[in-house]
């Protein structure tokens, strides 16, 4: 791998999309991303406010019908190469909400998912583990 490629893989920026989650995973994501105890900045990660700046997108929630189009549009706005991580069981399988009339269900039916982090919600360390796996995937695509 070239030197340039080796450097650029040390700067994976994170972006999170809430697709109708119960906020458990979002709170844990905020905790993972922003607090000293977990400090993902060590891995070169940084939370960004705009989807256009993102490399790794973390999706939570069971994808409700109301957000479906918005989430898909937002996903399109993230420039390639990107990696998708489904955080929590809701985006992975629909979780406990799967059978509802208002839920579109597992997110991999609508967009490509690369890494899954099951849990309800997963603990911050598990999220970091998922991000580390995502970085490995991302490295291949760079």
């Amino acid at each position: 791998m070239s030197f340039i490629a080796r450097i650029s893989q040390r700067s994976p920026w994170l972006y999170r999309i809430n697709a109708g989650s119960c906020n458990g995973c979002d709170v844990e994501l905020a905790t993972t991303a922003c607090i000293p105890r977990y400090d993902v900045e060590r891995l070169g990660c940084q939370y960004c406010g705009s989807p256009k700046h993102a490399d790794i997108v973390l999706i939570t929630g069971p994808l409700t019908l109301r957000v479906k189009d918005k989430v898909l549009r937002l996903y399109e706005e993230i420039p390639d190469p990107k990696v998708t991580v489904a955080v929590g069981i809701c985006p992975i399988s629909g979780g406990v909400f799967r059978n509802s009339y208002a839920v579109a269900g597992a997110i991999d039916r609508y967009l490509p998912v690369d890494v899954n982090v099951p849990g309800c919600p997963p603990r911050p360390q598990a999220i970091i583990e998922g991000i580390a796996k995502a970085i490995d995937v991302w490295r291949e695509r760079l």
Binding site: S93, G94, R98, N99, S100, Y101, V103, G105, A106
Partner: peptide, 14 residues
């Protein structure tokens, strides 16, 4: 019951 109409189908395929 709504589930029999739409979504339990998705649970079943799952």
């Amino acid at each position: 019951p709504f589930s029999t109409m739409v979504n339990s189908a998705s649970t079943k395929t799952l």
